[in-house]
Design a protein around this nucleic acid. Structure first.
Lengths: 152, 152
DNA sequence: GGTTACTTGACAGTATGCTGTCGTTTATCT
DNA sequence: AGATAAACGACAGCATACTGTCAAGTAACC
């Protein structure tokens, strides 16, 4: 006899599928927004993670929920393109801190208006309170999912 | 002078980042759930899309929000592994319909209980009405995002 | 019926992100 | 201080998903 899903579990299962689909749409939009500034969605993510605070590669991975190795690759590309640079980390000899260069900041500035315009249009006609509730629930789900282990 | 974000746009921007992160968590869980049944998250998605209805590759792509070519690759793999088969499409000479084989159905059955258990645990303590509201908002956002074009 | 537009599958190339593994560096514990 | 554990960067290999392009099939239009 198969296991029974709770009401919440049924809804969560629907949310999983919708999240996959929504992520695809967001990613596609992010690529189109960042393309004209010479960036991709993934590089924008990494550069954005160090805009206001220098971070090590591993730290960026934790903040964005990505594997260390994925970030390492993108960070190296950003450095090779002159959009970011590794700076010495007083707290760690080999784990250098990534920080945007002037050109890196300039690239982000070039897409800011495009991102704002997109966000304004895409959120048009949607109640802010409902969006805030959705944001809070997504944050809560992230916590729950990361704490839920899957038995081998 | 930079463009101004509406309140809803600010919230949407936060939701974008949370969605990226949540998708990563869901994907990781889906891989762990489907692994013991000899599937991956991506193959489970495609097989799941034809469980109750045969579909062409392009149709699966539309339903799941994926590129035709991505689905084609996975569908070919499923067929080569004997988990699905292409059947003649009376309405189109070359666009065959994908359908699970008996073994394909069996694989899905093998992970059903694991998925249910995960969903029950991960949704524990979360109000069903709030989850339903989130689900509805995600569906709405998908529609909005897919209708919002990004100027070149 | 024939032209045109769209859909579909196929193939190639690329970007993203994962796991696994290794040696080094840092932190912890006794 | 020394041993153990954990974190970090580096490298390799692989899965997933994208864009671009082409030929063939289907639908729409005149």
């Amino acid at each position: 006899m198969p296991l029974e899903k709770t009401e919440a579990a049924k809804l969560l299962t629907e949310i999983v599928l919708l999240t996959f689909r929504l992520e695809g749409g967001f990613l596609s939009a992010a690529d189109k927004i960042s393309g004209p500034a010479g960036l991709t969605a993934a590089r924008w993510k990494v550069l954005g993670a160090v805009l206001y605070e220098k971070r090590s590669v591993a730290e960026i991975g934790r903040v964005m929920g990505l594997a260390r190795q994925s970030v390492q690759r993108l960070a190296d590309i950003l450095v090779s393109e002159g959009l970011a640079a590794y700076e010495d980390n007083p707290a760690h000899k080999s784990a250098k801190l990534l920080a945007p260069t002037e050109e890196g900041y300039a690239r982000i500035a070039r897409l800011a208006d495009r991102q704002t315009g997109w966000a304004n249009r895409a959120s048009q006609g949607i109640d802010a309170a409902e969006l805030a509730a959705t944001r809070d629930m997504l944050a809560r789900l992230i916590t729950h999912v990361e704490a839920t282990d899957v038995p081998a």
